[in-house]
Nucleic acid binder design. Structure first.
Length: 855
RNA sequence: GCCCGGGUGGCGAAAUCGGCAGACGCAAAGGACUUAAAAUCCUUUUCCCGGAAACGGGAGUGCGGGUUCAAGUCCCGCCCCGGGCACCA
């Protein structure tokens, strides 16, 4: 076996190196954590269910780091505790295994990504098993398994075969539109999965396009390579159709407020109006979006995005050269340059003029890259007096600034800045003197009556660019014929990727799959050669865990109803734990897919995850982020070899609150390791254990520990649960007589945290005291505490004078306020303080304190 | 710039509703055991002042104000650290 002597050369506190493999073998052989589904012979329908899920990992070549076991230990403790509380617990694990690193490794070495992926999964699985997690490993899935991605492709087809019905705000089958006799074009224009020519984020270094979410500061999130904008025909998912629901339906979820806010911001709902401006000297109209229609009288110019389709037509001949020049400049800019920090506004006049619909005034039309083609209508009315960006631009180019809103409190508007708050409309005849909210309403109604505009809601959220030019991803179940796409029959799923020798990108947006010429040919049609993004597989894995063996359905109906059953709440998974890095992308995408499946009647809840908890990052011992280059990475394998898995688990939980960022400490690991050693000695090297009644003081501590550990697990305050167990052990270690019953009860507390040691100690105890129920202890019910043992007969009361503690007394719990008062005033120390002064007031908090106010 | 999260001993932290600040652990110091060390066990440890000691007094939860009999906790104004967003009209 591996290294027998701890590398620190220290005395081994207890034989964890024997205990841990022993119990891991036991659990495996006895299938202790096998979770039956409805219909299985050992399924107990009377038990309530609890679905506790980890965000499954990408099995990287690096193996596990100490960040992984943080969340996994937390969920494992909850899972083990809930099992002991009589729940049927679903606690699965799998692999988000498609992804770029395996593909890049394949490009470098020629080794097929499937091989490296397999190897990495093996390693991860082995590492996780050594931590003693109570996963039902029979349910293990990998997104790269054809049995799995068959259903990823199938779900894609459901999305493809659906449209969003605005009236009911629900996805409906495309067949309904066909029945209404809509044309192919009309139908394709409404599909939830559609093909469009869009400006994409093309990353030459990665040889793929990226989603907006995968581009950070104009660079790829993965690798930090430059990203260019270029137009490309791409598969898109119409997530924007769900914008409203994705925002609103967050309300019923038990998620951290910050994450909900983040998602709402990402969706970016804003209410306003669309307004038509006539272009002077042409029949054309420019449509703009504004959230401040009440500032319409303050519009002194307009700005179009440089890519706006009407720029060509509007530009006058004198301005054409400058406009062309500017458009080219903008096109060649990367997103980083275009949105870069603190840069000056740029833009040029097109020479075109627009007519302000409220006052018939002529205003110039400019183009500038601070207006984005992808938001709203790609055109704005500029109101420099009341918008910071317009103000800056107007200053830069000497454009007029006209105030049409003044502060409601009568104060003077700022001299050298835009006034962007709400206020009172001025110089605005149609709604003169109205406060902003009413002015907005009035002008919008007016515009609607005149046919010049309407109320409009816009979202920052864009449709989801769903195609990647990669090899190692799910192929689309789509073929092309005569420029039209169609689904392959469901019977042909899964569509397997072709075997390739050469995984290199083509250097063009033509995906690597196009190199597989035989594969591409499909009965006179051509297969789609793009693949799905890595997010696809993680959009629904929590559903497959429920019924991973099902060959007929992505998840069996009965099993889905049972495990996702939400008791009136929207979300099905009872507890979902993972890092904040998935605050928007994964969680938004998964919610979107789930809602489509819900609308189509395939799943029973509108939301996937009811309660979400984010674990905090673990830093290196130096307080810096762990990284190879800093050399501060902690290897969990080494920690397990030196101190055992139970110590690793315990320390991960003892470090501090789960959600908090916190630094690693090897000394801290030793601390909890010593604690486990003390536990071992309390049970094993102790001749004071007797089969006797516990003393009242012992009973009180025992039941307080049962109470606190249970409550702390339920509130996920694992660090304080561990403190309480330490207090218990310290106390019982110094006891003259240690009652067996108390020790046995204690092991129920320890078992979720340090399951191996708890099993071993319980087994030993039970064999000596056969009266104890046979184990394993992890399968025995968690004892309820008895409040009778917690009642105190006496409490210590703090005596304060003017808020300062001057004395303390022990009194009976039921002492009346009058008694407390006279006791307090009777003690010597208080008399010294109070003598000769006037008592103004006496505050009495029963069971806590008496505060005497003198003056 | 905006939005979050955080600031408590030498360190990680704890402290239901405003009611004994520092539980528990680490580190450090002293002691017991040992030929010695490791391990273990016991004791001390927020700071300042007085005291041989028991103990007593004062200050103290980033800073400055406020509310209150009482503030780590509530309110107002700042400072610092970490993270996220960043022309979305």
């Amino acid at each position: 076996m591996s290294n027998e002597i701890p590398s620190t050369e220290k005395h081994r506190q207890y034989p964890f190196h024997e205990i841990e493999p022993k119990w891991q073998r036991y659990w495996e052989q006895h299938q202790t954590y096998r979770t039956p589904n409805p219909g299985d012979p050992d399924f107990d329908p009377s038990k309530p269910k609890f679905y506790v899920l980890d965000m499954f990992p990408y099995p990287s070549g690096e193996g596990l780091h100490v960040g992984h076991p943080e969340g996994y230990t937390a969920t494992d403790i909850v899972a083990r505790y809930m099992r002991k509380k009589g729940y049927q617990v679903l606690h699965p694990m799998g692999w988000d295994a498609f992804g770029l690193p395996a593909e890049q490794y394949a490009i470098k070495t020629g080794q097929h990504p499937r091989i490296t992926t397999e190897r990495n999964i093996q390693r991860f699985r082995q590492q996780l098993k050594r931590l003693g997690f109570c996963y039902d490993w029979r349910r293990e899935i990998a997104t790269t398994d054809p049995d799995y991605f068959k259903w990823t492709q199938w779900i894609f087809l459901q999305i493809y075969h659906s449209y969003f019905d605005e009236k009911t705000q629900k996805a409906r089958p495309i067949a309904e539109l066909e029945a209404q006799g809509l044309s192919r074009e009309e139908i394709d224009a409404r599909r939830l999965a559609y093909v469009a020519e869009v400006q994409v984020n093309w990353c030459p270094a990665l040889g793929t396009v990226l989603a907006n979410e995968e581009v950070v500061d104009g660079k790829s999130e993965v690798g930090g390579f430059p990203v260019e904008r270029r137009p490309l025909r791409q598969w898109m998912l119409r997530i924007t159709a769900y914008a409203e629901r994705l925002a609103n339906e967050l309300d019923g979820l038990d998620w951290p407020e910050g994450i909900k806010r983040h998602q709402r911001e990402w969706i970016g709902r804003s209410e306003g109006a669309e307004v038509k401006f006539r272009v002077k000297g042409s029949g054309r109209e420019l449509l703009i979006f504004t959230t401040r229609p009440d500032t319409l009288y303050g519009a002194t110019y307009m700005v179009l995005a440089p890519e706006h389709p009407l720029v060509e037509e509007i530009t006058t001949s004198e301005c054409r050269a400058a406009v062309e020049n500017y458009r080219q400049q903008v096109a060649s800019k990367s997103d980083l340059e275009r949105t870069g920090l603190a840069k000056e506004k740029t833009g040029v006049d097109t020479g075109g003029r627009a007519i302000n619909p409220v006052n018939g005034e002529e205003i110039p039309i400019w183009i500038a890259d601070y207006v984005l083609m992808s938001y709203g209508t790609g055109a704005i009315m500029a109101v420099p007096a009341h918008d910071e960006r317009d103000y800056e631009f107007a200053k830069q180019f000497g454009l007029p600034i006209r105030v049409v809103v003044r502060p409601a409190d009568g104060s003077a508007p700022p001299e050298d800045a835009a006034f962007c708050d709400e206020g009172i409309a001025v110089d605005s005849p149609i709604f003169e003197g109205l406060p902003t909210a009413e002015a907005k309403k009035k002008i919008t109604e007016w515009l609607e009556q005149q046919g010049l505009g309407r109320r409009k809601v816009n979202y920052k959220l864009r449709d989801w660019l769903f195609a990647r030019q990669r090899y190692w991803g799910e192929p689309f179940p789509i073929v092309w014929e005569q420029g039209q796409h169609r689904a392959v029959p469901e019977s042909e799923l899964p569509v397997l990727p072709p075997e390739l020798e050469d995984f290199r990108p083509t250097g063009t947006p033509e995906p690597p799959l196009s190199k597989a010429t035989d594969w591409v040919r499909y009965n006179g049609a051509r297969r789609e050669t793009n693949t799905m993004p890595q997010w696809a597989g993680s959009c629904w894995y929590y559903l497959r865990f429920i019924d991973p063996w099902n060959r007929d359905r992505f998840v069996g109906q009965e099993a889905e109803r049972y495990w996702m059953g939400a008791n009136g709440k929207p979300g099905g998974v009872d507890l979902y734990v993972g890092g904040t890095e998935h605050a928007v992308l994964h969680l938004l995408y998964a919610r979107f897919w789930h809602k489509v499946l819900y609308d189509l009647g395939y799943v029973s809840t509108p939301e996937p995850f009811q309660k979400l908890v984010n674990q905090g990052l673990i830093l290196g011992e130096d307080g810096q982020k762990m990284s190879k280059s800093r050399g501060n990475v902690i290897n969990p394998d080494q920690v397990i070899a030196d101190y055992g898995a139970d110590s690793l688990r315990l320390f991960e939980m003892f470090m501090g609150p789960l959600e908090q960022v916190k630094p690693w400490s090897m000394k801290g690991v030793e601390g909890v390791y010593r604690f486990l050693g003390r536990v071992w000695r309390l049970f094993r090297e102790n001749d004071r254990i007797q089969d006797v009644e516990a003393t009242p003081a012992q009973l009180k501590l025992l039941h307080e520990t049962l109470r606190k550990v249970a409550a702390d697990i339920e509130s996920m305050s694992f660090n304080t649960a561990i403190s309480q167990m330490m207090i218990f052990v310290n106390e019982f270690t110094s006891a003259d007589v240690v009652p067996v019953s108390a020790l046995a009860m204690f092991l129920h507390c320890l078992s979720p945290f340090a399951p191996h040691l708890a099993e071993e100690l319980y087994e030993g105890l039970q064999s000596r005291y056969p009266r104890l129920p046979p184990g394993p202890v992890s399968e025995l019910p968690f004892p309820d505490y008895d409040p009778r043992y917690l009642v105190e007969e006496e409490v210590e009361i703090v005596l304060q004078v003017n808020g300062k503690v001057r004395d303390r007394v022990r009194v009976g719990v039921n002492a009346s306020e009058e008694e407390l008062k006279s006791i307090a005033l009777g003690t010597e120390r208080i008399r010294e303080q109070v003598d000769g002064k006037q008592i103004r007031k006496v505050i009495i908090v029963p069971k806590r304190l008496v505060n005497i106010v003198v003056g």
